[in-house]
């Protein structure tokens, strides 16, 4: 087939809302865009284990400890689903990890903020996972099959994460004055960084246009951000807490809230490596990988010894 014909088939699939599968022909830029987006997503899942892992040893009860352990394990699993989805596009796991470890690849800016108190674990589950779900629900219908299927699994598991976060917030918000203050403090610190998770405003988002054209994304950054605010504000009110935004106001005409834009200069700064925890996160990730090298070597040697040789695909 000629290249035009291939492109026609590809465009036809998108037009009919059909999924593109690994062996299908796809434009090189579509492939590149997906590798970048899926790997960033995967990196975010496993870097996201770090701020939460920080509280496993100090969880206030056995119940909250097993729950947090299960949640952090889920995040690791989500990273693996996504890495294997990215690998179907012709990039190896080693390359993907190397890109993360050397700082060439990005991950969500949100995980470069510290989890200072137990209330932060509540805020992360409730707000950060809540924002992630909003994005991921949309991605269940993304045009690339393996990515969409990974999202379906992830969404199923993610809703427990958000609920456990909200439960922590509820306990604190309806607890003592000090506990309530702790919940408010966490909300104050996480609100705007969470808003940044949806990415820059549509007008300034370099990758949005292609993502929409190729149906990788179905909704824009600003649409998702608006939905997140509209959904979350009533939850904040239920908790008796205050959204740290003076400009937050119901707009009857648009049936949604007006709100302040997050500080995009801060966003750019954190993305470029200068957030409060960027160096710590990368160092922890590299350490974990390097400390695990002997396990990979031993597993490989053991497979060899038992004559179980599978050629790396």
């Amino acid at each position: 087939m000629e290249i035009n014909k291939f492109e026609e088939v590809f465009e036809g699939k998108l037009a009919k809302n059909e999924m593109v599968e690994p062996k299908d022909w796809m434009p090189e830029n579509y492939r590149k865009h997906l590798i970048r987006q899926i790997s960033q997503h995967a990196h975010s899942e496993i870097i996201g284990m770090l701020p939460e892992g920080n509280w496993i040893t100090r969880a206030p009860s056995l119940r909250s400890k097993v729950v947090l352990l299960a949640k952090v394990q889920d995040e690791g699993g989500h990273g693996l689903y996504l890495y294997t989805a990215a690998e179907t596009l012709g990039i190896s796991r080693d390359e993907l990890l190397d890109n993360l470890h050397t700082g060439r690849a990005k991950y969500s800016s949100i995980f470069n903020y510290p989890t200072l108190t137990w209330a932060d674990i509540g805020a992360v589950g409730w707000l950060v996972d809540g924002a992630a779900i909003m994005n991921q629900v949309m991605l269940q219908r993304t045009s690339y099959g393996p990515y969409a299927r990974a999202m379906v699994r992830i969404c199923k598991e993610e809703s427990f994460h958000q609920r456990q976060g909200f439960e922590i917030m509820t306990r604190l918000a309806f607890g003592t004055e000090d506990q309530k203050a702790m919940a408010q403090d966490a909300l104050n610190r996480w609100w705007f960084p969470t808003m940044m998770m949806f990415g820059p405003p549509d007008a300034e988002s370099p990758n949005s246009e292609n993502a929409m054209k190729w149906r990788i994304k179905r909704e824009t950054n600003d649409q998702l951000r608006q939905r997140f605010v509209d959904q979350t504000v009533p939850q904040v009110q239920y908790l008796g807490l205050t959204v740290p935004d003076e400009n937050l106001k119901w707009n009857e005409a648009k049936k949604g809230y007006d709100f302040s834009e997050p500080n995009w200069a801060e966003f750019k700064n954190v993305i470029s490596g200068n957030g409060p925890c960027n160096k710590e996160r990368l160092a922890a990730r590299n350490k974990a990988h390097n400390d695990g090298a002997w396990v990979r070597e031993a597993a490989q040697a053991f497979a060899k010894k038992r004559n179980e040789i599978y050629v790396a695909a």
Binding site: L80, A150, R153, A299, A303
Partner: peptide
């Protein structure tokens, strides 16, 4: 349901359990 990395059969099965049947 998906894929994973492992060095041998046993590890593949255990990883599959941990990854896909939690």
């Amino acid at each position: 349901c998906g894929s994973l990395h492992a060095f041998d059969k046993e590890m593949a099965l255990q990883n599959a359990r941990d990854l896909y049947t939690r």
